[in-house]
């Protein structure tokens, strides 16, 4: 029973964030929510596959603090992101922007979809043309063989 309750509690538990210390959080819950929203879009450059909100790395903590300072100073989300982006480049954005370098990255799903559609269209067209294709008329020899076979069949039926 106790195990079940513990399991249920595990299921109910929300995602854990590294911002656990009340001293790190902003007083205003709306501003804190905004800071978290921004932080979740920024990559921790030390651990790389975590956002700065999820990471315990020292640099992530510093960046969280900077995000909160700027939010409470009244900057817009875009301004706060731009501050970090100006220093660490596209790599810091967990959602990469569309530019010449990332064009292939963003275009790959479209290319794959286009390729698939093209393959389907081509194979369907080939199938249809195979069904509709005119059957070549019988050659004189084939006609003669067919006639002979039909004669044999007829003989069998008569006898």
């Amino acid at each position: 029973m106790l195990r079940r309750i513990a399991f249920a509690a595990l299921l109910l538990a929300g995602p854990a964030f590294a911002v656990g210390l009340p001293s790190e959080m902003l007083q205003d819950p709306a501003q804190e929510a905004r800071a978290r929203e921004i932080g979740r879009e920024l990559r921790c450059l030390v651990c790389q596959n975590q956002s700065i909100e999820d990471s315990e790395a020292g640099l992530a903590r510093d960046l969280r603090r900077i995000v909160r300072e700027r939010v409470s100073a009244g900057e817009s989300d875009a301004q706060v992101v731009a501050f970090v982006h100006d220093r660490y480049g596209d790599f810091v954005l967990l959602r990469p922007p569309f530019n010449a370098v990332t064009a292939v990255l963003w275009g790959a799903p479209l290319l794959a979809l286009g390729g698939g559609v093209l393959a389907i269209v081509l194979s369907r067209r080939r199938m249809r043309s195979a069904l509709v294709a005119e059957v070549a008329p019988l050659s004189p020899e084939e006609r003669a063989r067919l006639a002979a076979l039909e004669l044999i069949e007829e003989d069998k039926r008569i006898s």
């Binding site: 450059l45 030390v46 020292g58 640099l59 510093d62 960046l63 900077i66 220093r87 660490y88 480049g89």
Partner: peptide
């Protein structure tokens, strides 16, 4: 404080 390093884009 490590703030100047962040201005330089230092990550380690």
């Amino acid at each position: 404080p490590g703030r100047v390093a962040i201005d330089w884009g230092v990550y380690g």
